[in-house]
Amino acid sequence: MSELWKRHRNWLAPLLFIAPGALLFGTIIIASSFESVWISFFDWDGVGPKTWAGLANYRELFADPQFYVSLKNNVIWLVMFMAAPPLGLALALLVNQQVAGMRFLKSLFFIPLVLATVTVGVVFGWVYDPNYGLLALIFNLFGATAPALLADEHAVTFAVVVAALWPQIAFCMVLFLAGLNNLSPDIIGAGRVDGARGWNMLWHVVLPQLRQVGFIALAVTVVGALRSFDMIAVMTSGGPFGSSEVLAYQMYEQSIFSYRFGYGAAIATVLFAIMIVFITWYLRMMVRLEKETR
């Protein structure tokens, strides 16, 4: 036995090492995601037997006005979230000075990032309260009445996204600060000698060096936008009348509240398809950037 082990350990040992993590991730994350696609072809209440439905769930979904509302909101999330990298960069540039006390101030800027999204949701629920909230206070200062943003179907998604941007901007700020600390002093120095200053310097000398960090910031922002669920669940429960739902929330609601697991799985599959496009782009960029830096 030990003879056999010794002869084969050079390939058996790594196999044993990778097995627990790979099996767990492979079954619970990867296989489950594909199983969702399979379930989307059935009618299923989550408890009883599944009955084959073919493409019926998809036919219904593509005729469902709520699906287009959710999809549109996903696009709003994605577009508005694109403000996070530039604003994060702006904050990073603002605090990137070595002055006494700056380290502490900097770390206070990061706090939204470590708060649970539920906490952020509850906090912004306060901010938006039309009677007593922070927003109401500001409106009252100008003698105006604050709008009930979370009850207005045209404004609600924007209000939720602004709240979600708070931690996302902090995230991008952390990334860009690390990038700024890693700038090549030689290239900056050469830029200064050539008379580059301010905007010029930022655009032509600094930003090219932040490409890799910028790519990561963009990727985590896209993922953050497509993952949006917690804030919606906490702040609006998708309302009023489904106007703040996104695909992820609609999927959850159809499955857990309406017991339509097959239909929910069809929504999950659409989300999955969107993610696969993004992931393919990400992996290709990652390989390209890794080659560049070698």
């Binding site: 489950s32 995601s33 989550g46 993952r227 697991f261 999955f272 992996l283």
Partner: peptide, 28 residues
Amino acid sequence: YNFKGNALVFALFVGGNFLPAQIMMIPV
């Protein structure tokens, strides 16, 4: 370890970690 399929296994770990939770909710 440079085994065949190393890059694929790695890509699955990286890609899978981006998936929104709702995609795997029902089976899990």
